[in-house]
Computed example of a mutant assay.
Amino acid sequence: MADNNPFPMSREELLAAYRKMRTIREFEERLHIDFGRGDIPGFVHLYAGEEATATGIMFHLGDGDRIASTHRGHGHCIAKGVDVIGMMKEIYGKKGGSCNGKGGSMHIADLSKGMMGANGILGAGAPLICGAALAAKFRGKGEVGVTFTGDGACNQGTFLESMNLAAVWNLPVIFVVENNGYAESTSRDYGTAVESFVDRAAGFGMPGVSVDGTDLFAVYEAAGEMIKRARQGGGPALLECKMVRFYGHFEGDAQTYRAPGELDDIRENHDCIKILATQLKSSGVVSADELLAIDQQVIELIETAVKEAKAAPMPTLADLTSDVYINY
């Protein structure tokens, strides 16, 4: 690491992290536009504003490590390395998509990248990742499982039962609570008794840490310590990331539950990409021109993904009965 680099990541890693975050943002911003045009079928839940959390955590994971996502899963997929063009085709419901157009926005999966799937059932990823972590423990290769759960879904029984199971079996699991302040339209303060989700971890005898989820480096360092501990047999841990989302719970959400000026403040003062870019440029480790070049390359990638998705064929009737359990 260069002497003038004050960050816990190398210069190459910083550029890769910025590219990953920018890719997530541009992907989601484009979906916001295209969904509004009526080009995209089904429901869409956007990850814009939360990019630092997925990127900071996934930097420590390889293809052999499994993650279980949520309905707001595009950012997790991209950060884990799922092909962006394949994802766009999937969201458009086309052949060649990550799941051949059969899953759509809420059910993207790619087991080759350790992405077990997004999930439309709140809290359902937690028990799934316990199974993946148990398998990893038996394989003995030091692999881990990471499950992402929103602040609202953390009140589901499945989440709490999974924490207990992971603690009893000493599983290599990281429970990530993505606390963006709202369970759909319900404020966290209204629907959750504890002040911090870290308090829940203590009830199951596991360590817990709360960080600013818009700070890439805070997430990166906290996740790195937990994942290293889990790989070495230290057992489960909980990471709460306090974050913001730029859009509503779903596309079309009027967000009448937001306070006046709240969205403007989020965009202006809590944009994780803007924060990172300012840090990188002011440090002198990365130049503004380098970041602009990445921005342009990402825009071109997303444009290509949309063009290919629109041009791709629809699934046929013959595809209807493929990829189902009876054929396995």
Rank of each mutant, 00 (worst) to 15 (best):
P8W: 00
R11M: 06
K20F: 08
E28P: 14
H32T: 04
H32N: 14
G38E: 07
V44K: 06
H45N: 10
L46F: 03
L46S: 04
A54R: 10
G56K: 00
L61Q: 05
G62D: 11
G62M: 04
S69P: 14
G73H: 14
G73V: 07
G75S: 06
A79S: 15
V84H: 14
V84I: 14
M87D: 03
M88L: 06
K94V: 05
K102W: 08
S105L: 10
A109Y: 03
K113P: 09
L122K: 02
G123N: 09
C130D: 11
L134R: 12
V146D: 11
T147E: 11
G150C: 04
D151G: 07
G152L: 06
C154W: 09
N155F: 01
N155C: 08
G157M: 09
E161Y: 09
L165C: 00
W169I: 00
W169E: 15
F175E: 05
E178M: 11
N180E: 09
G181P: 01
E184A: 15
S187T: 12
R188D: 04
R188K: 10
D189S: 14
D189L: 11
T192I: 13
V194E: 14
E195M: 13
A202Q: 07
G205E: 01
V219A: 00
Y220P: 00
A222L: 00
A223I: 08
G224T: 01
R231P: 00
G234T: 02
G234V: 01
G248N: 11
D253L: 12
Q255V: 06
Q255Y: 05
Q255A: 14
T256S: 13
A259L: 13
A259R: 15
P260D: 01
D264N: 12
D265A: 15
N269Y: 12
H270M: 13
T278M: 14
K281H: 09
G284C: 06
E290M: 06
L291D: 08
A293I: 02
I299A: 15
L301C: 04
A305E: 03
A312L: 07
M314I: 10
S322N: 12
Y325Q: 13
